[in-house]
Amino acid sequence: MRNLRALEGWIYERLVALSGIASVVVMVLIFLFLFRESVPLFRDVSLRHFLFGRDWLPISEPPSFGIVPLVAGTFAVTVSAAVAAVPIGVGAAVYLAEIAPRRLREGLKLAVELLAALPSVVIGFLGIRLLVPWVKAVFGLPTGFTALTGAALLALMALPTIISVAEDALGAVPGTYRQASYALGATRWETITRVVIPAARSGLLAAVLLGFGRVIGETMVVLMVTGNAPIVPRSLFDPARLMTATIAAEMGETVRPSEHYHALFAVGAVLFAVTFLVNLAADRVARGREAR
């Protein structure tokens, strides 16, 4: 009886340990598969051409797999989205954490959570129905499917991440700092700008990085509203094609395996590397705060 119980415990504990390392295994597998499925591309295409080629023409004859327009599109759209979302998100977080009356705070947070929960395909759908015609009409463009449209929607999608991480960071600032500041005769605004925000600096930076990481990996919205022209956009009013959207749009129609198939995996690997670095940086920054 006793032995049986011990055996059961032993088995379960092994299973638990296995699920513990599952995350690591998955991480390694993702890494491996992206690598394994992209490498064959470079038998025919030079790494140099892939990274610096200015044409993404996967089904032309001969095809060209230059990733520059995709990187440029991704860069233009996501950076614009971040530039728009950071001040709004941090401002809203300051309001939530420092100014909003306690009773309203929970309601505000719930609203932000609901936004975070909205599937991106729904945001993309509303973008097509509402924002795209608006952009076309207001700016007098030939099409409303532009980098700007994508950036605006991505900014919206980055908000929940930025707001909630920034609000956590502000909330983690010890109350004694605020009390000391008030006791010296500082006003609320002085306390916020000179004590609370500087003290939460690294957490706020982490919020921005995580928001950016969220936006860079977003697929459906940009696939649906940016127009997907594989050119380097000259302005935000041009259509753009992003790395994520390229994978989503083209993978369904490739022959497997083929050069095109491997090229899409290579794009995925680049995307993975970028988000990996951004998230790693955010984690470092946030941890730096804990160490203090």
């Binding site: 004694t176 000391a180 006791a183």
Partner: peptide, 20 residues
């Protein structure tokens, strides 16, 4: 209130210097 708090200084239980 702000001027009042300027005129009445306070020291707290645990030392709470700002992270500056």
């Amino acid at each position: 209130v702000v001027d009042l708090r300027r005129r009445v200084g306070m020291v707290f239980q645990t030392p709470n210097p700002f992270p500056k």
